[in-house]
Design a protein around this nucleic acid. Structure first.
Lengths: 106, 106
DNA sequence: TATATGTGCAACTATTTGGTTTCACAAAGT
DNA sequence: ACTTTGTGAAACCAAATAGTTGCACATATA
Protein backbone atom coordinates (compact mmCIF):
# COMPACT_ATOMS: atom_id res chain seq x y z
CA UNK A 1 0.00 0.00 0.00
CA UNK A 2 2.84 2.37 -0.86
CA UNK A 3 1.64 5.56 -2.37
CA UNK A 4 3.48 8.27 -4.22
CA UNK A 5 2.55 11.88 -4.92
CA UNK A 6 1.30 11.14 -8.41
CA UNK A 7 -1.14 8.61 -7.10
CA UNK A 8 -2.15 11.06 -4.37
CA UNK A 9 -3.08 13.79 -6.84
CA UNK A 10 -4.82 11.36 -9.18
CA UNK A 11 -8.07 11.63 -7.25
CA UNK A 12 -10.08 14.79 -8.00
CA UNK A 13 -11.33 15.08 -4.42
CA UNK A 14 -7.77 15.01 -3.13
CA UNK A 15 -6.72 17.66 -5.62
CA UNK A 16 -9.63 19.79 -4.41
CA UNK A 17 -8.58 19.26 -0.79
CA UNK A 18 -5.04 20.30 -1.62
CA UNK A 19 -6.24 23.46 -3.34
CA UNK A 20 -8.61 24.17 -0.45
CA UNK A 21 -6.05 24.02 2.32
CA UNK A 22 -3.34 25.65 0.25
CA UNK A 23 -4.56 29.04 1.35
CA UNK A 24 -5.19 28.24 5.01
CA UNK A 25 -5.00 25.20 7.29
CA UNK A 26 -8.35 23.57 8.02
CA UNK A 27 -9.86 20.87 10.24
CA UNK A 28 -11.25 17.63 8.74
CA UNK A 29 -14.81 18.74 9.51
CA UNK A 30 -14.33 22.09 7.85
CA UNK A 31 -12.83 20.40 4.82
CA UNK A 32 -15.61 17.81 4.64
CA UNK A 33 -18.19 20.61 4.57
CA UNK A 34 -16.91 21.48 1.11
CA UNK A 35 -17.65 18.03 -0.31
CA UNK A 36 -20.55 15.70 -0.92
CA UNK A 37 -18.96 12.66 0.65
CA UNK A 38 -18.82 11.86 4.34
CA UNK A 39 -16.31 13.18 6.84
CA UNK A 40 -14.81 9.70 7.10
CA UNK A 41 -14.21 9.54 3.39
CA UNK A 42 -12.46 12.90 3.55
CA UNK A 43 -10.52 11.64 6.55
CA UNK A 44 -9.24 8.74 4.47
CA UNK A 45 -8.10 11.14 1.78
CA UNK A 46 -6.32 13.19 4.43
CA UNK A 47 -4.60 10.05 5.64
CA UNK A 48 -3.34 9.25 2.15
CA UNK A 49 -2.14 12.81 1.64
CA UNK A 50 -0.41 12.72 5.02
CA UNK A 51 1.26 9.39 4.22
CA UNK A 52 3.00 10.84 1.20
CA UNK A 53 3.75 14.03 3.15
CA UNK A 54 1.81 16.36 0.93
CA UNK A 55 0.05 17.70 4.02
CA UNK A 56 0.93 18.00 7.71
CA UNK A 57 -1.12 18.02 10.90
CA UNK A 58 -1.21 20.75 13.53
CA UNK A 59 -2.99 19.81 16.73
CA UNK A 60 -4.85 22.60 18.53
CA UNK A 61 -6.77 21.34 21.52
CA UNK A 62 -9.03 18.62 20.20
CA UNK A 63 -8.97 20.06 16.71
CA UNK A 64 -6.45 19.05 14.09
CA UNK A 65 -5.58 21.51 11.37
CA UNK A 66 -4.25 20.15 8.12
CA UNK A 67 -1.95 22.36 6.09
CA UNK A 68 -0.36 21.90 2.72
CA UNK A 69 3.34 21.12 2.49
CA UNK A 70 3.82 23.19 -0.59
CA UNK A 71 7.48 22.20 -0.83
CA UNK A 72 6.41 18.64 -1.55
CA UNK A 73 4.46 19.85 -4.55
CA UNK A 74 7.77 20.79 -6.09
CA UNK A 75 8.45 17.11 -6.71
CA UNK A 76 5.81 17.19 -9.41
CA UNK A 77 7.44 20.28 -10.80
CA UNK A 78 10.79 18.51 -10.84
CA UNK A 79 9.30 15.61 -12.78
CA UNK A 80 7.77 18.04 -15.25
CA UNK A 81 11.16 19.65 -15.77
CA UNK A 82 12.26 17.06 -18.35
CA UNK A 83 9.21 17.82 -20.48
CA UNK A 84 9.42 21.54 -19.95
CA UNK A 85 12.78 21.36 -21.63
CA UNK A 86 11.15 19.80 -24.66
CA UNK A 87 8.28 22.22 -25.01
CA UNK A 88 10.54 25.20 -24.42
CA UNK A 89 12.95 24.02 -27.09
CA UNK A 90 9.99 23.85 -29.45
CA UNK A 91 9.22 27.48 -28.70
CA UNK A 92 12.80 28.33 -29.43
CA UNK A 93 12.55 26.46 -32.71
CA UNK A 94 9.38 28.39 -33.54
CA UNK A 95 11.06 31.64 -32.62
CA UNK A 96 13.97 30.79 -34.87
CA UNK A 97 11.59 29.97 -37.70
CA UNK A 98 9.70 33.24 -37.30
CA UNK A 99 12.97 35.10 -37.23
CA UNK A 100 14.06 33.42 -40.44
CA UNK A 101 10.79 34.31 -42.15
CA UNK A 102 11.07 37.87 -40.94
CA UNK A 103 14.58 38.20 -42.30
CA UNK A 104 13.58 36.56 -45.56
CA UNK A 105 10.91 39.24 -46.01
CA UNK A 106 13.54 41.92 -45.91
CA UNK B 1 -14.34 5.07 -17.57
CA UNK B 2 -13.44 8.72 -18.07
CA UNK B 3 -9.82 9.39 -17.40
CA UNK B 4 -7.94 12.61 -16.90
CA UNK B 5 -4.25 13.38 -17.18
CA UNK B 6 -3.65 13.11 -13.46
CA UNK B 7 -5.00 9.60 -13.39
CA UNK B 8 -2.96 8.80 -16.48
CA UNK B 9 0.32 9.81 -14.87
CA UNK B 10 -0.55 8.10 -11.58
CA UNK B 11 0.76 4.78 -12.83
CA UNK B 12 4.57 4.47 -12.71
CA UNK B 13 4.70 2.37 -15.88
CA UNK B 14 2.78 5.03 -17.76
CA UNK B 15 5.11 7.75 -16.48
CA UNK B 16 8.02 5.62 -17.68
CA UNK B 17 6.40 5.20 -21.09
CA UNK B 18 5.87 8.95 -21.35
CA UNK B 19 9.50 9.63 -20.49
CA UNK B 20 10.62 6.95 -22.91
CA UNK B 21 8.80 8.24 -25.97
CA UNK B 22 9.40 11.88 -25.08
CA UNK B 23 12.69 11.77 -26.95
CA UNK B 24 11.55 9.76 -29.96
CA UNK B 25 8.38 8.04 -31.16
CA UNK B 26 8.32 4.27 -30.65
CA UNK B 27 6.23 1.24 -31.59
CA UNK B 28 4.34 -0.76 -28.91
CA UNK B 29 6.74 -3.67 -29.26
CA UNK B 30 9.78 -1.45 -28.87
CA UNK B 31 8.21 0.16 -25.79
CA UNK B 32 7.23 -3.18 -24.29
CA UNK B 33 10.85 -4.36 -24.57
CA UNK B 34 11.70 -1.83 -21.87
CA UNK B 35 9.30 -3.33 -19.35
CA UNK B 36 8.71 -6.56 -17.49
CA UNK B 37 5.03 -6.81 -18.31
CA UNK B 38 3.53 -8.16 -21.52
CA UNK B 39 3.06 -6.27 -24.77
CA UNK B 40 -0.71 -6.34 -24.22
CA UNK B 41 -0.35 -4.70 -20.84
CA UNK B 42 1.76 -1.95 -22.39
CA UNK B 43 -0.80 -1.68 -25.17
CA UNK B 44 -3.49 -1.01 -22.58
CA UNK B 45 -1.40 1.74 -21.06
CA UNK B 46 -0.93 3.24 -24.51
CA UNK B 47 -4.68 3.17 -25.00
CA UNK B 48 -5.25 5.05 -21.76
CA UNK B 49 -2.58 7.61 -22.63
CA UNK B 50 -4.12 8.01 -26.09
CA UNK B 51 -7.61 8.46 -24.65
CA UNK B 52 -6.55 11.47 -22.64
CA UNK B 53 -4.49 12.72 -25.58
CA UNK B 54 -1.13 12.61 -23.85
CA UNK B 55 0.21 10.62 -26.80
CA UNK B 56 -0.65 10.34 -30.51
CA UNK B 57 -0.33 7.56 -33.05
CA UNK B 58 1.56 7.69 -36.32
CA UNK B 59 0.91 4.77 -38.66
CA UNK B 60 3.82 3.65 -40.81
CA UNK B 61 3.03 0.53 -42.80
CA UNK B 62 1.96 -2.06 -40.30
CA UNK B 63 3.85 -0.35 -37.51
CA UNK B 64 2.34 2.30 -35.26
CA UNK B 65 4.63 4.86 -33.69
CA UNK B 66 3.48 6.52 -30.52
CA UNK B 67 4.77 9.99 -29.76
CA UNK B 68 4.32 12.28 -26.81
CA UNK B 69 2.00 15.25 -27.10
CA UNK B 70 4.17 17.44 -24.97
CA UNK B 71 1.71 20.32 -25.15
CA UNK B 72 -0.76 18.26 -23.17
CA UNK B 73 1.75 17.97 -20.36
CA UNK B 74 1.36 21.68 -19.88
CA UNK B 75 -2.01 21.07 -18.30
CA UNK B 76 -0.23 19.66 -15.29
CA UNK B 77 2.00 22.69 -15.29
CA UNK B 78 -1.05 24.93 -15.36
CA UNK B 79 -2.53 23.15 -12.36
CA UNK B 80 0.77 23.51 -10.53
CA UNK B 81 0.74 27.23 -11.20
CA UNK B 82 -1.49 28.01 -8.21
CA UNK B 83 0.97 26.30 -5.87
CA UNK B 84 4.00 27.73 -7.58
CA UNK B 85 2.65 31.14 -6.64
CA UNK B 86 2.62 30.07 -3.01
CA UNK B 87 6.10 28.64 -2.89
CA UNK B 88 7.51 31.56 -4.83
CA UNK B 89 5.86 34.04 -2.50
CA UNK B 90 7.53 32.22 0.37
CA UNK B 91 10.86 32.79 -1.30
CA UNK B 92 9.99 36.44 -1.68
CA UNK B 93 9.09 36.60 1.99
CA UNK B 94 12.40 35.00 2.83
CA UNK B 95 14.19 37.46 0.59
CA UNK B 96 12.40 40.32 2.28
CA UNK B 97 13.36 38.95 5.69
CA UNK B 98 16.98 38.60 4.71
CA UNK B 99 16.95 42.12 3.34
CA UNK B 100 15.49 43.42 6.59
CA UNK B 101 18.16 41.64 8.60
CA UNK B 102 20.87 42.96 6.31
CA UNK B 103 19.62 46.54 6.69
CA UNK B 104 19.25 46.13 10.44
CA UNK B 105 22.92 45.16 10.60
CA UNK B 106 23.91 48.43 9.07
C1' DT C 1 -0.60 -18.35 -51.48
C1' DA C 2 1.34 -19.55 -47.12
C1' DT C 3 3.74 -17.81 -43.19
C1' DA C 4 5.54 -14.49 -40.05
C1' DT C 5 5.04 -10.07 -37.80
C1' DG C 6 2.78 -6.02 -35.51
C1' DT C 7 -1.07 -4.70 -33.35
C1' DG C 8 -5.68 -4.15 -30.94
C1' DC C 9 -9.54 -6.17 -28.45
C1' DA C 10 -12.32 -9.30 -25.47
C1' DA C 11 -12.68 -12.21 -21.48
C1' DC C 12 -11.18 -13.35 -17.11
C1' DT C 13 -8.78 -12.51 -12.50
C1' DA C 14 -6.60 -10.63 -8.35
C1' DT C 15 -5.84 -6.46 -6.18
C1' DT C 16 -6.67 -1.71 -5.20
C1' DT C 17 -9.64 2.03 -4.60
C1' DG C 18 -13.12 5.13 -2.71
C1' DG C 19 -16.99 4.98 -0.29
C1' DT C 20 -20.20 3.81 3.73
C1' DT C 21 -21.49 2.41 8.46
C1' DT C 22 -20.18 1.57 13.01
C1' DC C 23 -17.34 2.03 16.80
C1' DA C 24 -13.73 3.95 20.17
C1' DC C 25 -11.74 7.65 22.50
C1' DA C 26 -10.13 12.04 24.00
C1' DA C 27 -11.07 16.95 24.74
C1' DA C 28 -14.33 20.57 25.78
C1' DG C 29 -18.77 22.18 27.61
C1' DT C 30 -22.87 21.50 30.83
C1' DA D 1 -20.18 13.10 36.23
C1' DC D 2 -22.67 13.43 31.88
C1' DT D 3 -23.06 15.00 27.20
C1' DT D 4 -21.42 16.93 23.10
C1' DT D 5 -17.93 17.53 19.73
C1' DG D 6 -13.84 16.32 16.82
C1' DT D 7 -11.37 12.79 15.22
C1' DG D 8 -9.28 8.20 13.68
C1' DA D 9 -9.71 3.20 12.79
C1' DA D 10 -11.97 -1.17 11.54
C1' DA D 11 -15.13 -3.88 8.78
C1' DC D 12 -17.41 -4.28 4.81
C1' DC D 13 -18.74 -3.38 -0.26
C1' DA D 14 -19.10 -2.05 -5.20
C1' DA D 15 -16.39 -0.42 -8.76
C1' DA D 16 -12.14 0.40 -11.02
C1' DT D 17 -7.44 -1.05 -12.12
C1' DA D 18 -3.54 -3.54 -13.99
C1' DG D 19 -2.36 -7.64 -15.36
C1' DT D 20 -2.83 -12.17 -17.98
C1' DT D 21 -4.16 -15.37 -21.91
C1' DG D 22 -6.25 -16.13 -26.21
C1' DC D 23 -8.02 -14.46 -30.47
C1' DA D 24 -8.68 -11.60 -34.75
C1' DC D 25 -6.90 -9.09 -38.45
C1' DA D 26 -4.07 -6.50 -41.43
C1' DT D 27 0.50 -5.92 -43.47
C1' DA D 28 4.74 -7.56 -44.82
C1' DT D 29 7.82 -11.48 -46.56
C1' DA D 30 8.95 -16.26 -48.36
Amino acid sequence: MRRDIFQAIADPTRRAIIALIALQAMTPNAIADHFESSRQAVSKHLKILTECELIKQEQKGREIFYKLEVEKMKEIDIWLEQFRKIWESRFEQLDALLLTLKNAKK
